[in-house]
Simulated assay, not measured.
Amino acid sequence: MIALVRSEATKLLTTKAVWILAIVAVLATWPMSMTNSATPPNLPADSELLFSSAPIPLDYQGFEMAGFGYVLVVAIASLWAGSEYGGDGQIRTTLLATPKRLRVFLVKIALLAFVVAVTGFLTMTGALVITHAVGEAGINPWALTPVIWANIGGVVLAWTFTALIAFAVGTIARTAILPLILISPLVIGVGDFLVGLWPGAKALPTTAGASLYSDPATGLFLEPALGGLIQATWAAVLVAIAAVTFTRRDL
């Protein structure tokens, strides 16, 4: 088992695309948070020149930056799922070295969850510290409120569940293309658009996940606990299907 973890970790951590996407998620979000939080001087908070005239509660300010990293997380998971099925047939070598397929699958999703969780924590913690340091809205950036920490945890969970969903879809399809096509549009705004047309869209995996760190008073999202449960169910079901497919399907 130790040898398997070491070999799979080597694959994941030596894939340049994974490092690039993770670093971009962190280092690009921070300056974007700084720019987004810098309010022009002498501009009222309810000015029409601002992005929204409706004030955002302090505990939820800065979490709009989570959407940028969301896309990169889907890309990381998709690449990790599809990398084994490229032209060199790496999956054959993997299973020759470790014939116990379920063990291989579980190690892969555990490593992915770890990388995404760390990336999400670093990204959003830095983004929120910068948001409240630059915005000077009244919250000490070095002593964030319990609600803000809970919302940061919500982003980490939402990103991790979304990554597992993308990985499961990629494993079932044996390609990185399908999860990118299916999940990326939901992440970049299609999910929120569908909520305006059909209330049932709140139960879509990415929209349900967004409820873990979004202001429920807007009416666009489910209650955090319910949204988290729904997204976790999506992830559990798809991961279970992918596990069965991975262990029983011919190469």
Rank of each mutant, 00 (worst) to 15 (best):
F221K: 09
A176D: 10
I241E: 02
G120A: 13
L112K: 00
G138T: 13
H132D: 09
W142T: 12
T245I: 09
A240H: 03
W159I: 01
L197D: 03
G126A: 13
I188M: 14
G227K: 08
V187D: 06
T245M: 08
Q231C: 04
P185Y: 00
T160R: 02
D192M: 11
P224C: 04
I148L: 06
I139H: 08
L106Q: 03
P185M: 07
F193E: 10
N151S: 14
W149G: 07
D192Y: 09
A133R: 11
A173H: 05
T145P: 09
G227R: 01
L112Q: 08
T233K: 00
F114K: 01
T145A: 12
A150P: 06
G227E: 10
I230D: 05
I181D: 08
I172H: 00
L180R: 00
A217C: 05
L180C: 13
T218A: 08
A127E: 11
P185Q: 05
L204T: 03
T119D: 11
L220M: 15
W159F: 15
W159G: 01
T160Y: 00
A203K: 03
L180A: 14
G170W: 00
K202F: 04
Q231D: 10
S184Q: 08
V118P: 04
F221M: 11
G189Q: 10
A235R: 02
T160V: 04
A217Q: 15
L112V: 00
F121D: 01
M124P: 06
L186D: 05
V129D: 11
A210W: 04
L180K: 08
A203Y: 14
A210P: 03
A203N: 10
L178G: 12
T218I: 00
L112M: 09
P179F: 01
G189M: 07
D192R: 12
I181K: 01
T131N: 14
V116K: 03
A173M: 10
L122G: 10
V147W: 07
F167G: 02
I181C: 08
I165V: 12
V107F: 11
A240V: 12
N151D: 13
R174D: 03
Q231V: 13
V237M: 04
A236S: 09
K108A: 11
K108F: 07
L178V: 15
T175I: 03
G191Y: 05
G154K: 01
R174G: 06
A137S: 12
T218R: 12
A203P: 00
I241L: 15
G219Y: 05
G170K: 00
N151A: 14
V187G: 11
L194H: 02
F121K: 01
F121M: 14
A163E: 03
A242G: 14
G227L: 06
L106H: 03
V107I: 12
M124K: 04
A217L: 13
L164H: 04
T245G: 07
P199W: 14
I165H: 04
L182F: 10
F193W: 13
A158L: 01
L128P: 12
G219H: 11
V118H: 04
T131L: 07
S211M: 09
G126L: 14
L238T: 00
L106K: 04
G227I: 02
I172F: 02
I152T: 00
W159M: 09
V237K: 02
G200I: 05
V239S: 06
A168I: 00
V116D: 01
I130K: 07
G126H: 13
A201M: 06
G227P: 09
D192Q: 15
I130Q: 08
A168N: 00
A225F: 12
I230V: 15
L122W: 05
T171M: 13
